[in-house]
Design a protein around this nucleic acid. Structure first.
Length: 423
RNA sequence: GGAGAAAUGGCAGAGUGGUCGAAUGCGGCGGUCUUGAAAACCGUUGAUCGUUUACGCGGUCCGGGGGUUCGAAUCCCUCUUUCUCCGCCA
């Protein structure tokens, strides 16, 4: 959520930058500014009335003390009137505030000036590419065939026990999952992150805090009995740790990492590009989150980008980094790098990580502030990234490393998997 | 699940209807003293909204929400959480 003051001070800039996201903001922003004036007027009226009412109440106390009961009773009648008026004003203020808030929730984050224009992923800009495509022969199999051949991931069982998109991992498939999770966590710890295990269910306030609600309501699984949501990413619980809190400038940077299951309904996107591990309803992910001083958040974004790149390099997967264009950028993000690995048999780039700077957009919703060295309380900047999401990494590892003798694990994973070949 | 107790500022802990945004202690910050540090002493120390060029002034906040009252940290209702005892349980 953007701050009203910021919108007022940077009106034209906000409108122009939001246009990069293909968001027409001028009408909304006019409404926000009008409502803000209305809100402040209502607030002033109410405050003045309450001040008067408070003065009367004190005076009545004094009158009682000095035995002037009649005068006190007279004053009471006046004060009761104040109370009725205050109720009306307070209701009006509440309405105006709610309206204003609802409008603010509709305005997406302002993109960083370096975000390219464009509508779809076709318009994303390649910023880095590394590694060579695997040399596979004609008979190379896509991962959905490989997993059957070696009996390591079973979709049919998942269909039977739960439904589509909830596979079982079995034998070396399960051990590969466990190995990757530990590998990613260890690398994050070496980079100075603190490990967390989080709840997999969060409440409504947390959903609003990180921006999944209200706009992505239908994408999360919901527990109706408790009004809880299954997390789509560990970003939600990890970032909501800091909801309604105030840090010191010396606390930066905060670096957290969490492995979690992630649950996504993927409503609307089922049907294409979803074969095998390409898109699941439940998957595993190691997520890194950083909390940073506003002046340093873009340095931090680069650091996180480098961390993710180093993981892919170690796994010897060919990858590229894309700067998302305005149309592909999420509601909450100011700048996002997507990481894609090349999956040799599908001959496709698969998105395996998304590293974003949300600037103060989440922090404003979260009421997550810090006391700066100048003594002022300001909003923090929040960033996060996948490091990494497992299923597509597994898909690429299986496809790119297949040989006549089986699937060879990359050197770096062998201590983690405990085996060299899936055969 | 049942019975009881509790929730106050960064922490501990007073406060049961009228200058209480809240005593006191610890911690934090500034200063005096000291070669330096500690101790001691003095001062200061919450968030948020509105208003003001500014000094300041005003509103709101004592777990969340609602109510009683001219006036609520204090009384009532409700929800949540924590603790103790019992039950159940990986």
């Amino acid at each position: 959520m953007l701050q009203v003051q910021y919108i007022k001070d940077h009106r034209e800039e906000v409108i122009n930058l939001l246009a990069i996201k293909n968001f027409k903001a001028s009408d909304l922003i006019q409404q926000v500014i009008d409502l803000d004036i209305k809100r402040r007027n209502s607030q002033k009226k109410l405050d003045d009335l309450l001040a008067e009412s408070n003065r009367s109440a004190k005076e009545i106390g004094m009158l009682y003390k000095t035995g002037k009961v009649e005068e006190a009773n007279k004053l009471k009648e006046v004060t009761i009137e104040y109370k009725h008026e205050a109720k009306v004003l307070s209701d009006r203020l509440g309405e105006v505030s709610d309206q204003l808030n609802a409008l603010l929730l509709e305005i997406p984050n302002v993109p960083h000036p370096s975000v390219p224009g464009g509508n779809t992923e076709q318009d994303n800009v390649l910023v880095f590419e590394e590694g060579s495509f695997p040399e596979l022969d004609e008979k190379a199999l896509p991962h959905w065939d490989l997993i059957k051949r070696y009996d390591i991931i079973n979709f049919e069982l998942g269909n039977k026990v739960t439904g589509a998109g909830f596979p079982f991992y079995k034998g070396k498939g399960a051990r590969l999952q466990r190995g990757l999770i530990n590998f990613f966590l260890d690398r994050a710890l070496e980079a100075g992150y603190i490990e967390y295990q989080t709840p997999l269910l969060v409440n409504r306030d947390s959903g609003y805090g990180t921006g999944q609600l209200p706009d992505k309501d239908g994408q999360m699984y919901k527990i109706n009995e408790e009004d809880y949501y299954l997390i789509p990413t560990a970003e939600v619980p990890i970032t909501n740790i800091y909801r309604n809190s105030i840090l010191k400038a010396a606390d930066f940077p905060i670096k957290n990492v969490a492995y979690s299951n992630c649950f996504r309904r993927e409503a609307g996107s089922w049907g294409k590009d979803v074969r095998g591990l390409n898109r699941l309803h439940q998957f595993d992910k190691v997520e890194i989150v950083q909390i940073q001083h506003p002046e340093k958040s873009y340095e931090t974004l680069e650091e996180m980008k480098d961390h993710v790149a180093s993981l892919l390099r170690e796994l010897k997967l060919p990858f590229r980094i894309m700067r998302l264009c305005g149309g592909d950028l999420s509601f909450t993000s100011a700048l996002t790098y997507d990481f894609e690995v090349f999956s040799g048999a599908q001959k496709k780039w698969l998105e395996v990580s998304s590293v974003s700077n949300f600037e103060s957009f989440q922090a404003n919703r979260l009421k997550f502030r810090f006391k700066d060295t100048d003594g002022k309380t300001k909003l923090t900047h929040t960033l996060n990234g996948s490091a990494l999401a497992l299923p597509r990494i597994v898909a690429a590892l299986l496809e790119n490393n297949q040989t006549e003798e089986g699937i060879r694990m990359p050197e770096v994973l062998i201590p983690y998997t405990g085996f060299e070949v899936i055969s």
